[in-house]
Amino acid sequence: MPLVTQDQLYALFSTLNTWQDRYREIIKLAKLMPILPEEARSIENQIYGCENHVWLIVEKNSQHQLNFYGDSEGRIVKGLMTILLILANGKTAVEIAEFDFAAVLKRLKIIDELSESRQLGVQNIINKIKNLASMN
């Protein structure tokens, strides 16, 4: 991670015409993210408000760039998280605070498709990314 960039995501999703295809791609993207080891799947690293268990951790390098690792029991949520982390990884805390994740998801035609409760789930992950970034 990241194996793809924001521009590559735009290119990839622009070729997808149906919601089914977009979901297939989201599920495929989930495979890019390694499974978190058991010790990282702790209650402290869990994101609440999701129907399945979702975990997120962060590391900072010497250039103050953040690298997130996440995992989820469900493949779709993991795929959505992979997209968010492609966007977040390599950025500094300040850059993440200013970054409009929802706008990118909208352009990828992902966010409009999700039901309101799922949008809330995605928002929870975005909030957690911003929250973790602000603490590092």
Binding site: C50, N52, E73, G74, R118
Partner: peptide
């Protein structure tokens, strides 16, 4: 072999109201 949430998301997508979890 499939998490219930994955099915639930895709059912919601198709306007089917169910409960999962």
């Amino acid at each position: 072999d499939i998490h219930h949430d994955d099915i639930a998301i895709l059912l919601t997508e198709q306007n089917i109201a169910i409960r999962n979890g």
